[in-house]
Write a protein that binds this DNA or RNA. Structure first.
Lengths: 127, 127
DNA sequence: CTTGTCCCTCACGTGAACGTCAGGTTCTAC
DNA sequence: GTAGAACCTGACGTTCACGTGAGGGACAAG
């Protein structure tokens, strides 16, 4: 498939896909005219990249991790890197949970009858 | 206290504190000479701001949320906003968990004896 | 009254992950 | 073979949360 199709399939912009290739995260075959062509598994690859971006990893870190995910590299260093990133994500989850609890407390307070809001207000907010 | 002390107490840079004030997230009294002075509760305020930044909220969103947290604003709109941000954080946590599980699977694979690494390798990576 | 440290306000620099033109080529369909 | 859609390569623009000087006041100590 060409880049436009991959973009619509994954919901990622064409520019982003070219950027991923620029960063070495995604590879493509080229037609005689220079156009990029992708295999079907590129879709999963893009999803994985997006997932790691969403987890707060940088392009550089993803670039380092991908060979491990592909099981092409398996050294003590690579395993240490994997664990380090997993732990970083764990810490981030903890932080997010704290923020979530904090917001939840505020929400509970703001929706309690004593806070001066009426039931109608609350219903209107839901609608 | 002055800005330097607040910075060291919170572990946030002086520049960041001034930036928070610029964004309307933090207020300060000024001395006759124009220097910022903070009350003790500014420390908690900064921690809260940092927590919300860590949760991926923008300055603008934090600016909108803070009056709710301070229980100074409690409208249907503000409650809807609080819930929206909480839900966003929930989704982010879900994404992070997925990424974490994915990494965990890779780690389990890379550390399994069948993957071609020796026990000594594994121990070395831990050290 | 000077020294040193802290503080002030501009204001430009930064890095990441793209967005967005410009100008030109390739592919598809009729 | 020609129109139009999709694609190409630069290359500059954007946003955010600050970093980093430049140049100059504020304030406690001696």
């Amino acid at each position: 498939m060409r880049i436009g199709e991959l973009a619509t399939k994954t919901g990622v912009s064409v520019r982003a896909l070219r950027y991923y290739e620029e960063q070495g995260l995604l590879t493509s075959a080229r037609s005689s005219g220079g156009q990029r062509h992708y295999l079907d598994d590129a879709v999963d690859r893009v999803y994985l990249i997006q997932m790691l971006y969403a987890a707060g990893l940088s392009s550089r870190t993803i670039l380092d991790l991908l060979p491990c995910v592909d099981a092409k590299v398996n050294t003590p260093q690579s395993r240490a890197m994997l664990r380090a990133e997993r732990d970083r994500i764990d810490r981030q989850i903890t932080q997010l949970r704290q923020a979530r609890e904090r917001l939840d407390a505020v929400i509970a307070l703001s929706e309690s009858p004593a806070s001066g809001c009426t039931r109608a207000d609350t219903d209107a907010a839901v609608a």
